[in-house]
């Protein structure tokens, strides 16, 4: 039976072909069969993690605590120079220039992306906004978050910074970023289950050597990642502790 590899559901469809290419590379690198199992949402992926159906995961930072501390997963790598950051933005039609200008109760467009949403909520705190004073409109993508703002349905939106910067210039021109996070240490990571512990060192070596061979290079290019950077156990524990401080 093949091992099961999965990817955090916050990736847009255009990234998925890259993960299929990576899965092919992975199977050749380890000489083991892997099945890339995709989940439509975080809830179904978490159910799979809880019932021990996952062997390898490119995980959202929000899920790292459960993976490491409850399920014994170990970190392998993160994309070099790529941290998860959040942006709070509004329509340029609105008068708000900084977070503190927002009214005492707002409608917020967001996604199910758990780490970005959590960072966004932290950045609303200086305006005395919290879960009790924010009505959420959960969207399936960041483009839909932008549409909620442009149509005037929501007062503000939470974006992954990368997704905000990737919006078309027509949309971007109609949005105003009120605040950008500069946290720098929150990132996705590839993590391996205790069932595959014997493969950890070999897989880590192969991942770090990807830029040195053609097949590895093209798999990285498909993911738009320059190279992988090693994540040691303590770095992951530090990120989990840090994320824990975000939860009020």
């Amino acid at each position: 039976m093949p091992h099961v590899f999965t990817v955090s559901p916050d990736f847009t469809p255009e990234h998925l072909s890259g993960w299929f290419i990576f899965n092919t590379w992975l199977q050749k690198a380890l000489g083991e069969a892997f099945h890339l199992q995709l989940y439509d949402d975080f809830h179904s992926q978490r159910d799979a993690i809880k019932s021990d159906r996952i062997d390898l995961i490119y995980a959202n930072p929000y899920d790292a605590a459960m993976l490491v501390r409850e399920k014994g997963f170990k970190p392998l790598v993160k994309p070099e120079g790529k941290a998860d950051e959040a942006v709070i933005a509004v329509s340029t039609e609105r008068p708000y220039l900084q977070v503190e200008d927002l009214p005492c109760s707002i409608k917020l467009a967001t996604t199910e992306d758990p780490d970005v949403h959590m960072m966004g909520m932290i950045m609303l705190e200086p305006a005395d906004l919290d879960a009790a004073s924010v009505e959420l409109k959960v969207c399936d993508s960041y483009v839909l978050v932008a549409k909620e703002l442009l149509k005037g349905y929501c007062d503000a939106g939470v974006f992954l910074a990368e997704a905000f910067n990737d919006l078309s210039s027509v949309i971007r021109k109609q949005l105003r970023a009120l605040v950008n996070s500069q946290i720098q240490v929150v990132h996705h990571a590839l993590m391996i289950s205790p069932r595959l512990a014997d493969h950890r060192d070999r897989l880590l070596g192969a991942l770090l050597a990807m830029p040195e061979n053609d097949k590895g290079k093209s798999a990285l290019a498909a993911l738009k990642i320059p190279r992988w950077e090693r994540v040691d156990d303590e770095e992951m524990e530090f990120m989990i502790d840090l994320m824990d401080t975000f939860v009020t």
Partner: peptide, 28 residues
């Protein structure tokens, strides 16, 4: 600041503390 401090627990031992400060609400 709004400060949050948590114990860093490794192998059931407290090895230190992490303190994270963020922008506070002016009302608070």
């Amino acid at each position: 600041v709004k400060a949050t401090v948590i114990p860093n627990i490794r192998n059931a031992q407290v090895i230190g503390y992490t303190s994270v400060r963020r922008k506070p609400s002016r009302q608070k």
